[in-house]
Write a protein that binds this DNA or RNA. Structure first.
Lengths: 222, 222, 222, 222
DNA sequence: GATGAATGAGAATTCATTCAT
DNA sequence: CATGAATGAATTCTCATTCAT
């Protein structure tokens, strides 16, 4: 995942203080993204960027130097959450031999990565069709598709479910309620996720209406 | 200097139909609440009130005459959705002989009433503790409690679920995604609700973590 | 003091119910002017007219039926206060044999008539040059001039003072402080007026700078 | 997730002249206060803040960056006028050997500092009980108390007067008449102040009614 | 005539974004 | 690079005035 944004000055050698600012700058960038995610979760995606900068411990102009506007920052946050969530999907495969256990582990891990925070951003606020994002999202879908298909193949879950169903339900159920620490993620959210997983595991009791979805679909109607 | 305020009754007979002019006013009031709900669903709870007024087809000041500020309008919207949702719960009991079918009918009906639109409002934006709201919320909880208990007693659903679990999961799953017509309520939402219901109906497969919740609990952490 | 505003329908005879609404209407008009004066004193000349109407116990539209706009109402209030103050000046002459005592009585009486409330209105807010107002103001000046000259002639006060000095100082000293009941007119204002009067009575100790003024002068600079 | 907010000190030496950029900012702040005082005097305390900003030559948001709201700006204006007025009281002591001349000098100087502009603000519009203001007001009262007591002790003025009487009368007499350049301060105001001073200097001719006041008292009734 | 409701224009305040140091 | 300050373009809300009953 090359983030070579601005690699122009990479050339080696001396120049003692040339790379130092880089270290700083990179740390700032990360701090800002972290702060932004936290505050989107706590206060919603409308949170003033000046406040994000304050929480990140940098001046507002530094934020704008790194991210041209709110859209750019949102983009990075989405990218970062998506990427880490994908990592969790991959870890889950490795960590659990039982395929449904793997899916289950992923679901809870995704909640901890605040995948729910992406929801409000799905609706505008950044360029859904940016290649970088599309790529990352496909990576996530592939990974989750793997988890789901393995569980189905093993007969461990009902088979009328698509990746999109999992991802959307998962996102919605973990979607933060600004002002309430992420819907009190420990007291409620994991509980509801477990209920959801139990439902996936049980045999189908009805014909699900509507159509299975990919994340992609979500934007279609727009 | 007699300040005989209230001498208006000097004009004898008049005032027969003192409440008539309100026909218009009442319609306006309702139109505003309706427009507000629609726009909260479409654009989120931060939608400019001037836009709400425009959609309602009234001047902005008319909105403010009816609702002192955003909080007051939000209050009314929440009240109205809660109330209609409760009605749906009561209807569901009457309409279905099977207790789980009743719960199921309620869940889908609540989605159509946009119960999910309440989520973003639960986090501030209005006075949670207003007696009027508390009363209405209790009515809703009682009604849903009835649905749930009957289904459990009939052995039609797992028994480790509380009203709050149903209401929170239901609200989250149907929570609107601004910019996407209520998460494309027909293509996805009812599907996910059905999946959720299937999960409720199936026997428990795991011990649910965390604690069951009432809507009340949601505010506790705050 | 003919206030034949709208006397067009004065014609006598029958018409039982023709003059009745008149009585009402007139009372309303007076109530509004009274309420306006009270509220100008209490809250300043920016007080919302709807509030004035409420205090007067009439609908806002009734206020506007009687006074085309804020200027018209202000006009009437000024006229009314000026007129009553003039009456007080005339009464003072009649009531006191000592010329300075008469002036003194007038000064305190003018305070009770809220002559200070005129100050904020002197600065725009209504048409200073309206003939009706000019006439009334001249009447006031004449009356006060009488008081002052008599006191001077009797050797009861310093002679380098003009009517305008008395009226302006009097108005300023009694000018209401919105939010503080007319500068607590009894505890402070009459005290300061007495001090002012004592100063007038004493022999001149210095050459007063500037020029004596008529109320008229006040508008000149504008 | 280290939230080492405050790592700004990573950049070693920097920050030498951290307060330099404030040169501009400070000037702006002062310009705004100056403009505000001028416009309060000219147009009253309700003058639109956007206009104040324009007069100060800054954008409206700059005003709001410096003063959270009208109250905060008013606070600063009051503070600034009070403080300068106190300075004048102290200067007056130094400049005049005769105690009454000192008082007299102060009174005219206070008018030039627009002490009268404080009047409309005394009635709400800012927090009267803010410690900063209370302190500054006490400083003013102390200073004027000194002037008054010295004049009394020297037998140069009547002795039934309190600081509050002087300050209130002084403020009222110099209170600006929006629309009229500070009551044409040179043509009328100094004249009336001189008359007032003459009255103070003369022996008491009557028992003053009411009670002497401190500025503090003015708020009591509220 | 009288009333409550409706309205648009304007004022206060916030915030994304740009600028100067 | 980093920063605090500046800015204008919304947004919320108020109020004088008009309208419909």
């Amino acid at each position: 995942m090359k983030t070579d944004t601005g690699t122009k000055t990479d050339n080696c050698f001396v120049r003692r203080r040339a790379s130092r600012p880089r270290a700083d700058a990179l740390r700032n960038r990360e701090r800002i993204v972290t702060a932004a995610l936290e505050m989107f979760v706590e206060f919603g995606p409308e949170v003033p960027l000046d406040e994000v900068a304050r929480r990140a411990g940098v001046g507002n102009a530094t934020l704008y130097r790194n991210f041209a506007d709110r859209e750019a920052l949102t983009h990075e946050v989405v990218l970062s959450v998506t990427s880490r969530t994908t990592d969790r999907a991959e870890e889950a495969v490795a960590a659990e031999s039982d395929p449904f256990a793997a899916l289950s582990r992923f679901v809870h891990a995704a909640a901890d990565e605040r995948i729910g925070a992406l929801c409000p951003m799905l609706s505008g606020g950044f360029d859904q069709h940016h290649p970088e994002l599309l790529a990352e999202r496909r990576r996530l879908e592939k990974a989750v598709e793997g988890l789901v298909e393995r569980a189905m193949t093993a007969g461990r879950m009902r088979t009328d479910i698509a990746v999109g169903d999992v991802l959307v339900a998962l996102s919605q159920l973990t979607r933060p309620l600004p002002g309430i620490a992420c819907l009190d993620i420990d007291r409620f959210t994991h509980r509801h996720l477990q209920l959801f997983l139990d439902g996936l595991e049980a045999p189908a009791r009805s014909v699900l209406p509507g159509s299975a979805a990919t994340l992609e679909d979500l934007r279609r109607g727009h």
